[in-house]
Design a protein around this nucleic acid. Structure first.
Lengths: 190, 190
DNA sequence: TGTACATCAGTGAACGCGCGTTCACTGATGTAC
DNA sequence: TGTACATCAGTGAACGCGCGTTCACTGATGTAC
């Protein structure tokens, strides 16, 4: 069969979305090409007509997932919930319990730090964008102070969600989220 | 050959130390049994006279590495550097650049969250100990306030170090550490 | 209009490789009689 | 004292399996003449 114009792009985007989610859920190393392609409704061989290698897919999936973060922050601002609303969502049980649709930095930062420079570079560029966007919406302070606060808050957010995900005690996990929220708001304001 | 009394225990501890370091450096999934045992100066088959499975080793290595954290905090207190001294070390370039000897939560929290409940349970128990120890040395506040601060600070520490490790821009990485330090001290005091 | 060829997304078997785990075996020493 | 057997940490080859990647092929459609 021949395919519609734009069909290949659609397929590529579909693979990317499936991969991005699977990576965040199970970790990059745990996702195999055959399983990934089968989940995307294709066979393994087709992968290489879309991406040069697994590492190239990782690179694109990371950037894609960070763009998702940008979208979430923008949506929170537009909805009137503001940066605080974004932070509340970030430190919610729903985010903790759904890593596949959640923040890619919380799910994969440590693993990505062991990936090649090209991958980390692509991640870094988008990460800078996210930080700049957060800084814009910090309520008080000069532009440098805002950036500093944004970096601190981001670190707190990803670390707290990771701890909330790893501990097996639900009470402790909830406690981590609640305290993280207080700490984040404190960092945002002061 | 026969072996000295205590020889098996020494070997077990040696495997554990090598594994603990390799896990933190490369991630748990990336460490293979043959390579690990060869680094420990043994052959692959000997592993199973010491541990029931790779997962059992992971469990013990995580607990071991968290006990290392307890030791570091106690050392900082005893040296007079206090909790602030521990935090300064934690957010130092040296810690960022040596994950193998560093905080296991920063290196492996996200990966461990995908491991079996037994592994996460063992991690959680030791994690509680570390949090309690940090809380003890927060300078101001009631015991509940201290615990809350300890949880917030821990999240900030591990998240910040992970971000500092993943970004490929050295300036940004240093900036993350510096701002993380200010934020942590702010959370500790307020 | 009909025919020959080019295009290209996708198929599915196969490649070499390293994984976690098993197991028959080694060989030095301790114990029983 | 001498001999037969038990103990046990460690060896190293082998197990089945899934990994990332390659490649000859398919088959529907577009293009050239």
């Amino acid at each position: 069969m021949r395919y519609d114009k734009g069909h290949k792009d659609t397929t590529r985007r579909h693979i990317l979305e499936v991969a991005s989610r699977q990576f965040r859920e199970g970790g990059i190393a745990a996702v195999g090409m055959a399983g990934l392609m089968s989940r995307a409704g294709l066979t393994n061989g087709a992968f290489y007509t879309h991406f040069a290698s697994k590492e190239a897919l990782v690179r694109d999936a990371l950037v894609d997932a960070l763009e998702e973060s940008v979208g979430k922050i923008e949506a929170a601002i537009e909805s009137g919930a503001g940066l605080e609303g974004f932070i509340r969502d970030y430190l919610s049980p729903r985010h903790r319990d759904n890593p596949g649709r959640g923040c890619v930095a919380a799910a994969l930062a440590a693993e990505v730090s062991r990936h090649p420079a090209a991958t980390r570079g692509a991640f870094t560029d988008k990460f800078e964008e996210v930080v700049a966007l957060i800084a814009t919406h910090i309520p008080v302070g000069g532009s440098e102070a805002k950036r500093r606060k944004a970096l601190g808050i981001y670190g707190l957010l990803i670390g707290t969600v990771q701890l909330a995900r790893v501990v097996s005690d639900k009470r402790l996990s909830d406690e981590l989220l609640t305290n993280g929220l207080h700490a984040a708001l404190q960092l945002m304001g002061a």
